[in-house]
Amino acid sequence: MPGTPEVEELCSAIEQSARKLGVAYSRDKVWPILTAYGDAFGHDATVVAFRVATSMRQAGELDCRFMTHPKEREPYAVALSNGITPETDHPVGDLLADIQERCPVDSYGIDFGVVGGFKKVYGFFTPETLQKVSTFADMPSMPRSLAANADFLARHGVADRVNVIGIDYGHRTVNVYLGAPAECYEPETIRSMLRELGMAEPSEQLLKLGEKSFGLYVTLNWESSKIERICYAVTTTDLATLPIPVEPEIVRFAQSIPYGGAERKFVYGIALAAEGEYHKIEAHLKWQAGVMDYI
């Protein structure tokens, strides 16, 4: 099936980057996703980014993410109707509808892997409509671990600072992105927060990156009352300016991504989970000032 020039261009960029990174590429996997959301790519406000991570679970994968338009179109329904994700009776399949019913979602994004296919939907809120943790904790389809950790989030000043929700349909997890106050990024506060969550002592790299972070997110699932993962992220136009050394595979990734703009933009994050720390980077092919960063 033919696509628009924008879809063809993005598909070519994905193939080029995947081959440079040694990631298995199949047009049959990528093309149906791009054409399902094809009208997004001619929109001036569309953001398109590629992402890789150093965790074992995400080895050999290249993720692509983009904003979808128009915002009134529900992206999960598009994925279901086009057969790019299966129906499920798990609560993860109801969560976006619960959010839409209760919250003023400003825009959406999706995330898919060149290998793994369709993965996530993101719902974004404007700075004027940041949401309360309690709003999501009360939703019947939300993991109970959010309610279980509501007091922890309130003590650290983020109870009313939710700016993005990310729903991972494949892994059945939820990311809650938080616009945390400055003190949350101080090394001692990071250590204290992680200790309270029962996580390992953070590395010096995480602490240094954390001090420069614009935000953090926590990952939840339906199988545990604990926060599964926490991540800190920074933005930069030059990886050499980061306060930490950059992993060699991430440098290789950054060099593999085509970009036609005047200034490259990266989002660099370090996440801490039960299996340890791992790094990830998002490189933008197209971005707009004022659009929410996430990783």
Rank of each mutant, 00 (worst) to 15 (best):
L206V: 09
D168I: 11
T129R: 11
I110D: 01
H171T: 11
Y122K: 08
I110S: 06
T126G: 11
A159G: 11
S107K: 14
L209S: 10
P187V: 00
F125T: 01
T126P: 03
Y122N: 12
E128M: 12
Q205W: 05
D138T: 06
R144I: 04
M139H: 06
Y108D: 02
E188T: 11
S141A: 15
F136G: 08
S107Q: 14
D138M: 08
F125H: 07
K119H: 15
Y169V: 08
C184S: 13
E211S: 11
M139E: 03
S134K: 14
K120C: 07
G123N: 06
L207E: 01
A182H: 15
T129L: 03
M199F: 09
A182F: 13
F118Y: 14
V164D: 06
A180K: 00
F118S: 09
D138N: 11
T135V: 12
I190M: 06
G109T: 00
F124A: 00
E188K: 11
D111G: 04
A150H: 05
Q131W: 01
V162K: 07
D111E: 13
L209K: 10
Q131A: 05
A150E: 15
H171E: 14
E211Y: 02
A180P: 07
D168Y: 10
M199L: 15
L178G: 04
T173L: 00
E211R: 14
T129W: 04
G117E: 12
L146V: 00
K119W: 02
G123H: 05
D111R: 04
G116P: 01
T173H: 06
G179P: 05
L178F: 03
E183S: 15
V114Q: 13
F152S: 06
D111Y: 00
G166C: 15
L194P: 07
N175D: 13
V121Q: 01
F125W: 12
G170E: 14
G179A: 12
R144A: 14
G116R: 13
M199I: 05
I167S: 05
E211N: 00
V121M: 02
V121N: 00
E188M: 10
E196T: 12
A148M: 04
E204A: 15
H171L: 14
R195G: 01
E211L: 13
F118V: 08
G113K: 02
P127W: 09
V174Y: 06
T129D: 10
F118H: 00
S203A: 02
E204T: 13
P181H: 06
R155I: 06
G210P: 07
G157T: 12
I190Y: 08
T189D: 02
V162M: 11
E183F: 15
L197N: 04
T173I: 02
L194Y: 11
G179H: 11
R144W: 10
K119A: 12
S134H: 10
N163M: 12
T129Q: 12
D160R: 01
V115L: 10
